[in-house]
Design a protein around this nucleic acid. Structure first.
Lengths: 112, 112
DNA sequence: TTCACGAATTGATGGTTATCGATGGAATCG
DNA sequence: CGATTCCATCGATAACCATCAATTCGTGAA
């Protein structure tokens, strides 16, 4: 194994070429940050499994968090395009976005 | 569409059942948080593409960040088991972990 | 119009995180 | 040995984030 390594010389580094386009990285990081929270990941899991939109008040009842916090988390998921909302009367119904990028959908399939 | 929705009654919520075990969610969130950073996601991408371990000094040369910051990011990736390290002389060679969980590997295949 | 209810926004707070400079340890070489 | 190089850790700071209480907004009902 060691034989396969190049002879490294002090003071000489081999900066790897950045192959992933920074724009793509930033886009991925945006989605990852939205999912990197227990509450939000659970929310996405619920929405992915639910056959019909879920009301904010239902989430407030399910998680032990205040309504503003739930709303804040949902806004974050909405900002990155993961979920969509419909208002029905005084209720807000959330569902997984219908036009997710294939990569994003694959991500969700792995995660939740 | 509206017809398929249940008749919602004021003050009555339908808390969705939490189907994803909290322990699994927490484990996923740990990995997601490690990946939800541009620098670290780039690092993982480089390591995934590289046929041989990459030196810390190479990353320091590639990214415009200080050496302690690079080291800190690598430690974070190491803490969640995404990468492994081997010391060769004074150099630290990093590589993607060999025994990644299938789900984690699938995650990386989608991302980088 | 007035009231009640669900949801979003605001402001504040405590906790986490990214970053750097400085320090110290380990290995190598003269 | 002493000097050099690479790396990890520590301490500090600034930025960010999750959370809640209070308020505001929008809708529907009385």
């Amino acid at each position: 194994m060691k034989a396969t390594l190049p002879e490294r010389v002090k003071g000489v580094c081999c900066p790897p070429s950045i192959t992933v386009p920074p724009a793509r990285v930033d886009a991925s990081v945006e989605v990852l940050k939205a999912l990197a929270d227990p509450t939000r990941l659970q929310m996405v899991g619920v929405l992915k499994r639910s056959t019909r939109p879920v009301c904010i008040c239902d989430f407030t009842a399910a998680f032990e968090l205040s309504q503003p916090t739930i709303s804040h988390h949902m806004a974050k998921l909405r900002d990155v395009g993961l979920v969509e909302m419909t208002k029905v009367g005084i209720w807000a119904h959330y569902r997984l976005a219908g036009h997710l990028e294939p990569k994003t959908r694959a991500l969700l399939d792995v995660l939740v």
